[in-house]
Amino acid sequence: MNSIAQRLESVREHITHAEKQAGRPPGSVQLLAVSKTRPAEDLRAALGAGQTRFGESYLQDARPKITALADAPIEWHFIGPIQSNKTREIAEHFAWVHSVERLKIARRLSEQRPPELPPLNVCLQINTSGEASKAGASPAEALTLARSIAELPRLRLRGLMTLPAPAGDFEQQRVPFRQLRQLFDQLNAEGLALDTLSMGMTDDLEAAIAEGSTIVRIGTAVFGARAPNKGRGTKDE
């Protein structure tokens, strides 16, 4: 079985190839290693291979890792659903939150972000599929919500995130990512200074990069197959 370092090298090569195929410059896409449910020693192995950005979906799973790896130069990203009673710890321990979909949650994150820390980077999660079971704000409410979030003092609205339903082929995969990129362009045309598109996972990163992704969220291809989901959260990246 490949080591985590070998898998990381393979994923990075994959991203570089996808950038080239899309006519984008090398390094235009960041790799976020999705480490939810993975033990701290796996993250240590990834750190040894130069990976410093890690994504977590479950606060109860992330807490012990954040403590165990407090000595490491990690940039922690929260990518899972956010309950109101979890916002304080997320605001205190994470540098990024990709899954903001309600103004109430954004306000709590802003109010609870410690003043000694830089503003919390956030992405507005958009439901590009329109499925009732999918998390995220609707595209129709994105502008109003984004403007309100952008005014919050302890947050920095960076961009948009989506988690589309699986699609059968490359062109089908591109559709929701194109929708998100078009919305991103529309919001910027309205005066919002967004620079981040968080989209693309192990199975569809090429399509996401072709449509302008700046952060791909990769778990399986970095850490290998994992145990079934614990509780609610995003699908396996």
Rank of each mutant, 00 (worst) to 15 (best):
V34T: 05
L120E: 04
L31S: 01
A72Y: 03
I105V: 15
A132D: 12
L192P: 04
L143W: 02
K235A: 15
P73N: 04
D169W: 07
T37P: 00
P25N: 08
L157N: 00
G55I: 07
I66G: 09
Q83G: 09
A106W: 03
I66Q: 15
I209N: 01
A49F: 07
R7Y: 10
L194Q: 08
I126C: 08
L31I: 06
P176H: 01
G159E: 01
I90S: 06
T67K: 15
G224Q: 09
A106K: 05
A62V: 06
C123W: 02
F184V: 02
S133I: 13
N2V: 10
L187Y: 02
V222M: 04
T128S: 10
P81V: 08
Q179R: 12
K104P: 05
G48A: 14
A46Q: 04
N188M: 13
P81L: 09
N188Y: 13
T67S: 13
A62C: 05
G224P: 05
I15Q: 03
M199I: 07
L59D: 08
G168K: 06
D169F: 10
V97H: 01
L205F: 13
A132C: 10
L117V: 11
A140C: 08
L8N: 08
T144C: 10
L183A: 07
G27C: 07
S35W: 00
A18S: 13
W76F: 10
E206H: 07
E111Q: 08
T128C: 05
V222G: 01
V97A: 09
R226L: 02
C123G: 03
L194P: 00
G136I: 03
Q60S: 14
E75I: 12
P26G: 11
E92R: 11
W76S: 04
I215V: 11
A46Y: 02
P118Q: 09
V222C: 06
E131V: 14
G233D: 11
E141D: 12
S133E: 15
R147L: 10
L180D: 06
G224D: 12
R181S: 06
V222L: 05
G136Y: 05
F54I: 01
G130V: 14
L59W: 12
T144S: 14
P176T: 13
N229K: 15
K20R: 12
E89W: 08
S198Q: 01
R174N: 00
S10G: 13
G159H: 06
I4S: 03
R217A: 02
K235G: 12
F184R: 06
A137V: 06
P118T: 11
H77A: 05
T214R: 04
A40Y: 00
S10Y: 13
L192G: 05
K235V: 14
R7F: 03
I149V: 09
D203R: 13
R147H: 12
R63E: 13
M201Y: 03
S57D: 11
I82V: 15
E211T: 05
E89K: 07
L145D: 08
D61W: 04
S99K: 01
S28F: 09
R147T: 10
A208C: 08
S35I: 06
Y58P: 02
D71Q: 13
S148Q: 15
A49V: 11
S3P: 09
Q125L: 05
D42F: 10
P119G: 00
E131R: 14
K104S: 13
H14K: 15
S198E: 03
T16N: 12
V97P: 00
L197V: 05
A210D: 07
A208Q: 04
L47Y: 09
R181T: 00
R63Y: 11
A210L: 09
A68S: 14
